Simulated assay, not measured.
Amino acid sequence: MKAAAGMRRVALVSPLGGCGRTTLAAHLASLLAERGHGVLVIDLSAQNALALHLGLLESQADAPLGVPARGWRDSVSEEAWWGEAALESSQGVRLLPHGAWKSACSVSDDPPDGWLSQQLDQLDLPGPGVMLLDTPALPAALALQAARCADLVLLLLDASARSLHWPQPVQALGETLPPGTQWGVLVTGVDARSASRMAALKTLREQWQQRLLPYPLHRDESVQLAQERGVCVHQHAPHSQAAHDFQGIADWVERQLGLQRKTRESA
């Protein structure tokens, strides 16, 4: 089985933990699905947390906090088709969870070059759309492979001093991407009440210039409150700052990929 023609891959990567890759993956998936695009989101991180944001929880004894106990890691171990582990949200988002942490312990995290792209090619997807890849922190092998098989790479850096030392390594990563791969830098954790974060944002804008997305992602308690309810922030608090930010990022992704927005009725 081959991936459907026109399925575009978007990799969310970062050299830093806690920058919001999983939160962004869930919100982009939900927003793009609501805009009529077919969406498959794949959790490549052993934290297995993406289902929490999408409300796809289970009540099994071996599923801590309700996250899915089985995922694509189990399929790899059993030499089975990844699609057997797929879940679907009420918004029409298809999710391939990572699977419980115990699954990660039994499978190598250092697959051969090109392995991930080969696995994704085998997914039977129902028409054109977007495949979102939520990754572990760089330089994990799966994160590098996700970036190198994507049409669009979003690199996340938070508005803090720790993000100011990455221009050279990130530029080096960009040079290893296949010709034609688009990539941009998204600043997260922006807080107008914090002088240090605003200073970091200013420096990041100077460092990345045209590579920087025009929509930074602000700190907003509404995101956490939405997660506790198993929904995304634009569904819980549509007029919040974070909801506005995620909508803008989704707009940018649509433009970069040349996606034509459509309603569910016309999909």
Rank of each mutant, 00 (worst) to 15 (best):
Q168S: 12
A49S: 10
R8M: 07
G129Y: 09
P112R: 06
A147M: 12
L173W: 07
I249T: 05
S222G: 15
S240C: 08
L177K: 09
L154S: 00
A26L: 03
L201D: 00
H244Q: 10
P178N: 00
Q91W: 12
H37C: 00
R193G: 14
L52Y: 01
P178F: 02
H165Q: 15
T135G: 00
S75I: 14
L164W: 11
K262P: 07
G129D: 07
P238A: 12
A243W: 15
A199S: 15
D134E: 04
Q122S: 12
H53N: 01
Q91T: 02
L204P: 01
R35K: 05
A141C: 14
A141R: 06
A100T: 03
V185L: 09
P97F: 03
A33G: 04
M1N: 14
L24W: 09
L186A: 01
D134M: 02
P169Q: 10
A85Q: 06
R255N: 09
Q145S: 07
L32A: 14
D113N: 09
S196H: 13
E206T: 10
Q145W: 03
D43F: 00
D110M: 07
A250I: 15
G66L: 03
S14A: 04
G180V: 03
E265D: 07
Q247V: 06
H53K: 04
L144E: 15
A146D: 06
P68V: 02
W208Y: 08
V170G: 09
Q210M: 10
L213F: 10
